[in-house]
Design a protein around this nucleic acid. Structure first.
Length: 302
DNA sequence: TGCAGATGATGAG
DNA sequence: TCATCCTCTGCAG
């Protein structure tokens, strides 16, 4: 259930613990047997995160790409590992550490070229050192797509998920339905700053805690996850800033949480997205994805 | 204990 | 826009 912060944390921890170790690999679930054979017996050289994607580089230019999606889960064990669950897609084992990957959306071997193609498609990641505010603004702030949708588009900005979207827009006091192209330079700079802070704190701490959220100290380790947030999952509850009720609405089949008072939602008309243009963009992206898949299939066959 | 919903992405229509 | 993949969590009973 990860957003970019968790992925970066995983990359950091795995890079520290697992790099330099030689792993045997298998697929208890059986759906990644060929890939596991390709990795097995190799030394892990580096682990990198880009947005919500993980890239494991093994000796011999073998690259493992993992995307956890909504359901994916990755567990690591420094001491003796338990038996893997039947859903375990990939198990990486060494005498010092074991990793169990289950339910990923993507678990595949890529060539260097495939990886470069995939990464070229991703937007700026606020947690990556080489990310640039100007490039991020250029990619995010175009067109009439509502800001809340644009933030989840990983080709515009990578690593932001539904929680971060809601919390960042709240902290930056931005209306979620504002057309991305209408965002001013100053507003974008504020949003970028908020995203960087939220992501880096969450990557360090292991969970997102929004500054100003109600009853933060008591709930961090507890079950009431929504109380770590200002608006996400708090529909009908008072906004911690102004006391107005937090609202929820569906946007592209995802729940969007916001405070209409603080974020000036009612002042912004709902944008009309140019359907024909959006469809053309979607088709272009689909073609690009197919091309990567084809190349992956060809390289696996080799 | 069982079930609905979810921190994503993709393909079909 | 909707269905699908797939697993886990939180809540109701």
């Amino acid at each position: 259930m990860p957003e970019g912060n968790i992925i970066h944390r995983v990359a950091r921890v795995h890079g520290r613990w697992l790099s330099g170790r030689r792993f045997t690999a298998d697929s208890p679930q059986g759906r990644f047997e060929d890939g596991a054979r390709g990795v097995s017996g190799r030394v892990l050289q580096a682990v990198e995160a880009h947005g919500k994607h993980l890239f494991y580089r093994f000796e011999g230019e073998v690259r493992l790409h993992v995307h956890l999606g909504l359901f994916g889960n990755i567990r690591h064990f420094r001491s003796e590992a338990p038996a893997p669950s039947p859903a375990c897609r990939l198990r990486l084992s060494s005498p010092h550490a074991t990793l169990h990957l289950s339910g990923p959306q993507a678990c595949e071997l890529l060539t260097a070229e495939d990886e470069a193609t995939l990464r070229a498609r991703l937007g700026e990641d606020p947690l990556r050192a080489e990310s640039s505010l100007e490039r991020a603004r250029e990619k995010l702030c175009r067109g009439r797509m509502p800001l809340a949708l644009a933030l989840l588009d990983q080709e515009r900005l990578s690593g932001v998920g539904n929680i971060l979207r809601a919390e960042a827009l709240f902290l930056a006091r931005l209306p979620p339905l504002l057309p991305a192209g209408a965002l001013s330079e100053a507003d974008f700079a504020r949003l970028w700053d908020v995203l960087q802070r939220l992501l880096s704190d969450a990557s360090r701490d292991g969970h997102i805690v929004t500054p100003g959220a109600p009853r933060v100290p008591e709930c961090v380790a507890g079950k009431k996850r929504a109380e770590r947030f200002c608006v996400y999952g708090r529909e009908g509850q008072p906004c911690p800033r102004c006391g107005a009720k937090v609202r929820r609405r569906e946007l592209a089949a995802r729940g969007l949480f916001f405070c209409a008072e603080c974020q000036g939602v009612d002042a912004v008309p709902r944008p009309r997205v140019a359907k024909k243009k959006a469809r053309a963009v979607q088709e272009k992206r689909r073609d690009a994805r197919r091309e990567v898949k084809k190349r992956t299939a060809r390289s696996t066959a080799r």
